Computed example of a mutant assay.
Amino acid sequence: MPGADGQFTLDLAVARGAQRIAGVDEAGRGPLAGPVVVAAVVFGPGRTPVNGLNDSKQLNARRRETLYERIVERALAWHVVAVEVEEIDRINIFQATMLGMRRAVEGVLHVAELARIDGNALPHGLPCPAEAWIGGDARDRAIMAASILAKVSRDRMMVALHEQWPQYGFADHKGYSTPAHLSALTAHGPCPHHRRSFAPVRAASAVSAPG
């Protein structure tokens, strides 16, 4: 049951007995451009297992794409949320990630008994009992699956942005602060999909602004 502030507290009995656990993870907290993407995945009893799951960072792109298709086919429920640059800049990247996690959990609430979130913090206002797992993307299959959905979804978004803004090389670095990206940012200034609340983007904005 939720407390007075609307926040659920973890019922250990629920945690021990839960079979429909929503694993939650994000991709894209660190980049200078593009959304932060959060996924929630629920595997239920009796579903065909997905073999080969791992932290998305430990898998190559081809393997992630293969597992993505298996996850969305075999999961009891899944939901992917993108929190766009405007919201990141307005509330900061940490709060935007927490917001995305809450929205992702809400998308699987019809089946989830418990949310298990990668990291050491729980979003405020979660609609079900939840626990934070540090290093969860290497320990829990549902979190691993969520990390794969989030990573593949975000990479696809960045490839699509590359079609519109090829000068930045988004298809290659996915918005992270590589030397090539920083060089392009200096040369061209930021595009509408750059996070202006991030210091390198602010610096490039100052350089590219008319004097």
Rank of each mutant, 00 (worst) to 15 (best):
N54T: 10
R47M: 12
G175W: 01
A138R: 07
A204G: 08
E26L: 11
R74E: 04
A4P: 15
Y68P: 11
S153P: 04
R156A: 10
V111I: 08
V159W: 03
H194G: 03
A145Y: 01
I21G: 07
E86Q: 14
A15Q: 15
F170A: 01
V37L: 13
F198A: 03
R141K: 11
A39K: 06
W133D: 03
I21Y: 06
G23C: 09
A160D: 09
D155V: 12
E113R: 05
A18R: 11
I134F: 01
V111Y: 02
H194Q: 06
E131N: 08
V81T: 02
M144F: 09
A145H: 01
R29M: 08
M1P: 06
A142S: 13
P49A: 02
P179C: 07
S147C: 14
E65A: 14
L67M: 13
A104P: 03
L122R: 15
V105H: 13
A209C: 08
A187R: 15
A171H: 12
R141C: 10
K174N: 03
E113D: 14
M101E: 10
G30C: 07
K151L: 07
D11F: 02
A22D: 12
A82D: 12
V83M: 00
P192A: 08
H173I: 02
T9Q: 15
L126T: 04
R62I: 10
D55I: 12
R47F: 05
G119K: 07
L67Y: 09
H79N: 14
A132L: 04
G6A: 13
A209Q: 03
A204M: 12
S56W: 11
A104N: 08
A18F: 01
I134C: 03
N120W: 01
K174I: 02
A82R: 10
E73C: 08
A184T: 00
T9M: 09
R116Q: 14
A203C: 04
A171S: 13
P179W: 08
N51Y: 03
A121R: 15
A187M: 14
S153L: 04
R62F: 07
D118F: 13
G175T: 05
G175R: 00
I117T: 02
V81R: 02
A160Q: 09
H173P: 06
I117S: 00
A112N: 15
A204I: 08
R16S: 15
R20G: 07
G28L: 07
G34P: 00
G135D: 06
G100T: 09
I93N: 01
L149R: 04
A22L: 09
N92R: 02
H79P: 04
F43A: 10
G46C: 03
R63L: 11
N54P: 15
P192F: 12
N51A: 12
I148F: 08
V81A: 00
Y168D: 05
V14L: 07
A199C: 05
R63V: 10
P210W: 09
V201M: 12
W78A: 15
V207E: 14
D172P: 06
P35E: 03
D172M: 10
P127Y: 01
